[in-house]
């Protein structure tokens, strides 16, 4: 297995033809950045638009259940895999992922979002072309801001 979770997430993003994928360097230590990213229940609603709550048991897990509640009250169950520098979350409809690796005193951080059903693929391509890049960079900036504040 590649020891670099960011390189690994790039492969998964390619396999999923993810609409949203970006990686950037954050000038903060890995522990601080991943401390934010891995704190899903507390931090994810600050990072993902239209997400009001994300209920998930704390700690690393190969597979654990989570419940996402949208701002309009829509509920969606997720499966979550969480390990140091590695997070994958998927529901019936969408996949989200984050990866981080220490890099020269800072952190290389990557994020992905993809749709699952084949019927949504055209939406994914359109969204990816129009908004994916900007949205994913905004996600990473917010992670950096929240890590700097903590």
């Amino acid at each position: 297995m590649s020891s670099d979770p960011v390189a690994r997430l790039r492969v998964v993003a390619t396999g999923l033809r993810a609409a949203m994928y970006a990686e950037e360097r954050i000038d903060l230590p890995y522990d601080r950045v991943w401390g934010i990213a891995a704190d899903l229940e507390r931090e994810l609603p600050h990072l993902v638009p239209f997400l009001r709550e994300f209920r998930v048991p704390p700690g690393d897990s190969d597979r654990k259940a989570a419940l996402a509640v949208g701002t309009l009250g829509v509920r969606e169950t997720f499966e979550v895999r969480l390990a140091p520098g590695w997070c994958l979350m998927q529901s019936r409809l969408v996949v989200g992922g984050m990866a981080a690796v220490a890099e020269d005193g800072g952190t290389r951080f990557a994020v992905l979002a993809a749709t699952r059903p084949a019927i949504l693929q055209p939406v994914q391509w359109m969204y990816g072309g129009l908004l994916g890049e900007r949205r994913s960079r905004a996600f990473i900036r917010t992670i950096a801001q929240r890590a700097a504040l903590r």
């Binding site: 297995m1 492969v11 998964v12 396999g15 999923l16 895999r81 994958l88 996949v95 993809a114 749709t115």
Partner: peptide, 13 residues
């Protein structure tokens, strides 16, 4: 993985 299961894709990787 072909059906878009990201966890299966991760296992396959």
């Amino acid at each position: 993985a072909q059906d878009g299961d990201a966890l299966a894709m991760d296992d396959l990787l």
